[in-house]
């Protein structure tokens, strides 16, 4: 059983058991434009919700990605080092950033489901 949740900072969180896969949404990659570099955290790092967890660089600008939940980084998407364009091609799939082991599953309840996120982004333009 897996669920996808979304944040107002345009991250998606796919929860499978006590591990969450995290990336930026398709809406976010469209706004950023061509991604040329992604700086990912070290495996083993403990991050608190709201900490800077990654940085996405497009041709024009750098954007911070904040941890949507608290936990430990257990895996990073090493493929982004060679092909950061995966974030543009498949933001909500092959362009994932990190996997985290959840510390507090109750944090997930504060996140939006897909329908709520779509309503949220529709109101931004």
């Amino acid at each position: 059983m897996s669920t996808v949740k979304f944040t107002e900072d345009h991250e998606w969180v796919l929860v499978e058991g006590d591990v969450a896969t995290i990336g930026i949404t398709n809406y976010a990659q469209e706004q950023l434009g061509d991604v040329v570099f992604v700086e990912l955290p070290e495996v083993g790092r403990e991050v608190a919700k709201g900490d800077e967890a990654a940085v996405v660089e497009s041709v024009k600008a750098a954007s911070e990605v904040y941890a949507p939940i608290t936990g430990e980084i257990v895996e990073i998407n090493g493929a982004l080092d060679e092909t950061p364009a995966k974030v543009n091609e498949d933001a909500q799939g092959a362009g994932w950033f990190v996997k985290m082991k959840l510390s507090d599953t109750s944090e997930l309840e504060e996140l939006m489901d897909e329908a709520a996120y779509n309503t949220f982004t529709a109101g931004l333009d």
Binding site: G33, D34, V59, K60
Partner: peptide, 12 residues
């Protein structure tokens, strides 16, 4: 215009 449909990378 900061970019068109090609995007910054494609336009460059």
């Amino acid at each position: 215009p900061v970019q068109y449909k090609l995007g910054v990378l494609g336009e460059h």
